[in-house]
């Protein structure tokens, strides 16, 4: 670098540099602070809970011990895992076959089907609440993970089909031609030709479907009744103390951190995939 005193040009450059990094710092603090604050709150003993601290002051796991001692919280975690995994499996299974039909075959009514899928993905969930309640009750799935697995297809399936169809369309035609020349049936074409190429897209959509099912609240709140059938968002929302004004914030924060950490890890590992899935669903849609 030169030894001359800084001229105006360099000064503005420096100011811009400092400004940029200050903005980056603000954004990181803004994005991460609530989660960070939940973590440090969850590690406080109840005696220190009501002192405001910006840094970690203690490492007390009694809040975690308390929530994991509750059978209903463990059951809620089990239910959430079971439901989210089943939803992913169903969405991918129905999604891959449907996207083959929509992405690779030209037939009358294809645009209509795509429009229906787009329409369903725009549905407000409340609009189907009473009708879906009836369906679930008549199938004897009320207060049962099955009812939630069924109802979650309303928001995971349209999204999965839409994104997989856009991916399916981008695959080269020659692949399929070769399979057809060899006399392969459509089923063989899907499983032997497309499936191996679709893994990245399926991982992305599966991940997004998992997160959506893990986080869902309205259906889970409405279609379950007893503690043993709840999912984690409902369990956390319903943790209560003696009254509205004495909520047990320590255990609530411990439970919040517990259910969020798997998601944060998933985001850290798969951020590239998540970003491409989100933008494929929107930009190309």
């Amino acid at each position: 670098m030169n030894q001359h005193p800084m001229n105006r040009y360099q000064l503005t450059r420096l100011a811009k540099h400092v400004g940029k990094w200050a903005l980056i710092a603000i954004i990181i603090v803004y994005a991460v602070f609530p989660f960070y604050y939940a973590v440090i709150t969850s590690l406080k003993p109840s005696s220190e809970l009501f002192e405001v601290n910006y840094w970690l002051t203690s490492l007390d796991f009694s809040n975690y011990a308390q929530i994991f001692a509750q059978k209903s919280f463990l059951q809620a975690i089990g239910n959430s895992i079971l439901i989210a995994l089943s939803v992913v499996l169903i969405a991918l299974l129905l999604g891959i076959t449907a996207s083959y039909a929509l992405g690779r075959v030209r037939f009358r009514g294809r645009s209509t089907v795509m429009l229906i899928i787009l329409g369903v993905s725009m549905f407000p969930q409340v609009a189907v609440l009473s009708g879906l309640f009836e369906v679930i009750r008549s199938l004897n799935l009320y207060n049962n993970p099955g009812g939630l697995i069924l109802s979650y297809t309303i928001f995971t399936l349209p999204f999965t089909v839409w994104v997989l169809t856009t991916f399916m369309r981008q695959l080269p035609m020659e692949l399929e031609e070769a399979a057809i020349m060899d006399g392969a049936t459509p089923w063989e074409t899907i499983t032997k030709v497309f499936l191996p190429l679709m893994w990245p897209a399926m991982a992305t959509t599966g991940l997004l479907a998992f997160i959506a099912a893990w986080n869902e609240f309205l259906f889970a709140l409405t279609f379950t009744l007893t503690n043993s059938e709840r999912t984690v968002p409902v369990a956390i929302a319903l943790i209560s103390g003696g009254s509205q004004h004495e909520l047990p914030w320590g255990p609530i924060m411990a439970a919040s951190v517990t259910v969020t950490i798997p998601l944060v890890i998933l985001v850290m590992i798969f951020q590239r995939r998540i970003v491409s899935g989100l933008t494929a669903g929107a930009v190309k849609g």
């Binding site: 954004i27 990181i28 994005a31 991460v32 609530p34 989660f35 604050y37 939940a38 709150t41 997160i211 893990w214 986080n215 609240f217 984690v232 968002p233 409902v234 956390i236 929302a237 914030w249 609530i252 924060m253 919040s256 259910v259 969020t260 998601l263 944060v264 998933l266 985001v267 850290m268 951020q271 998540i274 970003v275």
Partner: peptide
């Protein structure tokens, strides 16, 4: 970018509870 994604991944219920606190 990963830090910015965190609020998106946190369940709405949990973020509402964190902010309520």
């Amino acid at each position: 970018r990963a830090a910015v994604l965190i609020p998106w991944a946190i369940p709405t219920i949990v973020s509402a509870k964190m902010w309520a606190w």
